[in-house]
């Protein structure tokens, strides 16, 4: 579903790469936490997936599509296949909850009739059916994040990526959001969440991928726990984890 093969990205002016030879394979319907300190490369990795940034080298394949072939004109269509949840919600402030969710469907060209049928269902899923007419500023942080999630899942994407979705939320609300993501995952959506929150990582016991200095230093496939502080410093050349992507790379090296 998500395959990164030896992806390297270095921003102009930086001495060290933001991502250094990163390979990662996420299977369909997986729930993966991507953990790491600030500057570890989590956001860069997310930006690669959303095609905000392009890698300097390596291959990224998302949902069967090699991003090398995604030209500028394809980007909107490609992004509509993903669900994206932001740390700061990024809701349209002058639109109601209903309109925010409907917007994601409008840009996909869905008919008005289908939108009117879909939005209430999605709002019900995130438990916001009774808040449809409110504006974002009238909602709590948790509610705003649920609107953001509703917007991202309204088009029923196969992949949902969430960049620090609980960073601005309290403990209880964080649990609600993670439960909601878990529920969406149960419906068959592959989910990739970046987080600093040790509690939710340890509580959910899902796959945990740890990034450090632009490298994957740990990949706990199941029952993963947050052990960022214990993660070893990457050695160069690093091969922190053997993934199908690495296997591919190995074959290429042979060639």
């Amino acid at each position: 579903m998500i395959l990164l093969d030896s992806v390297t990205k270095k921003y102009a002016g930086d001495t060290e790469p933001a991502l250094d030879d990163v390979s990662l394979h996420i299977e369909p319907n997986e729930f993966v936490f991507l953990v790491g300190k600030s500057g570890a490369g989590k956001s860069t990795l997310m930006k690669m997936i959303t095609k905000e940034e392009n890698p300097d080298s390596g291959k990224i394949i998302i949902g069967g599509i090699d991003l090398d072939y995604v030209k500028k004109r394809h980007i909107p269509g490609y992004r509509r296949r993903l669900g994206v949840v932001f740390q700061d919600f990024k809701l349209l402030p002058r639109r109601t909850v209903y309109e925010n969710v409907a917007f994601a469907l409008e840009i996909a060209g869905m008919s008005g009739k289908d939108i009117r049928r879909t939005v209430p269902k999605v709002l019900e899923l995130v438990d916001l059916a009774d808040q449809a007419k409110k504006f974002p500023h009238q909602l709590s942080g948790g509610q705003q994040q649920r609107v953001s999630i509703a917007r991202s899942v309204a088009r029923q994407p196969k992949i949902l990526i969430a960049d620090e979705p609980t960073a601005n939320l309290d403990k209880l609300t964080t649990k609600e959001i993670i439960d909601l993501l878990k529920k969406i995952n149960d419906f068959g959506t592959t989910i990739l969440v970046t987080t600093h929150n040790e509690g939710i990582v340890n509580n959910l016991q899902k796959r945990v991928v740890t990034l450090k200095n632009g490298k994957i230093v740990d990949d706990q496939k199941t029952g993963g726990v947050y052990k960022l502080d214990e993660a070893p410093a990457p050695k160069r050349p690093a091969r922190a984890v053997q993934t199908p992507g690495h296997a591919l790379k190995t074959r290429r090296k042979v060639i």
Partner: peptide, 22 residues
């Protein structure tokens, strides 16, 4: 992979063009 990617992208473009008026 190239063939699958191009096919997927073509479908995306096609879907997009279907809703031009709307």
């Amino acid at each position: 992979l190239k063939s699958i990617s191009k096919k997927g992208l073509k479908t995306m473009q096609k879907n997009r063009n279907r809703h031009v008026v709307r």
